[in-house]
Amino acid sequence: MRTVKAEEVTEALAKVAVNANYDIGPEMLRAFDEALAAEKSEAGREVIRQIQKNARIAREECVPYCQDTGFAVVFAEVGQDVHVEGNLTDAINAGIRKAYSDGYLRKSILNDPIQRKNTGDNTPAVIHYEVVPGDKIRLTFGAKGGGSENMSKQAMLKPADGLEGVKKFVLETVSAGGANACPPLVIGVGLGGTFEKSCILSKKAAMRSPFHRNPDPFYAALEDELKESLNKLGIGPMGYGGTVTVLGVNIEVHPCHLVALPVAVNVNCHADRHGEVEL
């Protein structure tokens, strides 16, 4: 059985987390270029130009793209043939602690939703584990901003609501909260599963590049259709009015119960910061 040391996990994740906060990455930059070309409002274009300039400064000067350096969300796909020497959860949290301290990232995590005391090191991360075939560990990190997270929603629709009900819920969610969530947005939609599964899928979808379509042609077409509908809402960059409200819509799907149609919409801002590492 292959062995990975806990410290290797910590070091690798810390690097990914710092880098994701400084460098928004080539795919988001491409999305901004396309947004600038597509946006019809001058106020909207000015916002996009500022976003582009901001991305360059953050990358070149190694400073956070956004001051809200987020809740650390980690999707950990752990191969069933790999042994971690040490505690994997502790190693992941140590990586986040190191990143947020060494990288001058903001510590935004409170110990308790009611007592609200800052933990001081941005831990604990929210970790979603999945055991997969193979002997590798794949960590996908996302720095999830709080403002856009607050505009996210879940609904247990009736099966009779069907596809139209899903479209309506996505549109209503973005229509109500989009302006507050720092558009242009990346929208993650989790469809199916149970109540909690739909939310986790929506997070996974929100952390996917807006250029990677769902492999199922039906859902890929739905992603495109929803993107078009959402951009007709008129919210525009920063909500100032315009034709680019979303950079992309990503859908993740899971089988569901015969009485259920769960749908979750995770709203991500233009600071869609994520990164991956395989060990």
């Binding site: 916002v47 500022q50 976003i51 300039k53 901001n54 400064i57 953050a58 000067e61 400073v63 956070p64 793209y65 956004c66 001051q67 809200d68 903001r106 510590k107 935004s108 800052n118 901003g145 403002g147 720092c182 920063m238 100032y240 801002c269 233009h270 600071a271």
Partner: peptide, 28 residues
């Protein structure tokens, strides 16, 4: 007045001086 959300590195460039004047215990 609206500032561009997320353009945090760009906006920081416009800030020439910064002093904490109260509630230092609140951190950020």
């Amino acid at each position: 007045l609206g500032a561009t959300g997320g353009a945090a590195a760009l906006i920081a460039k416009c800030i020439k001086k910064c002093d904490i004047i109260a509630y230092e215990d609140l951190g950020p």
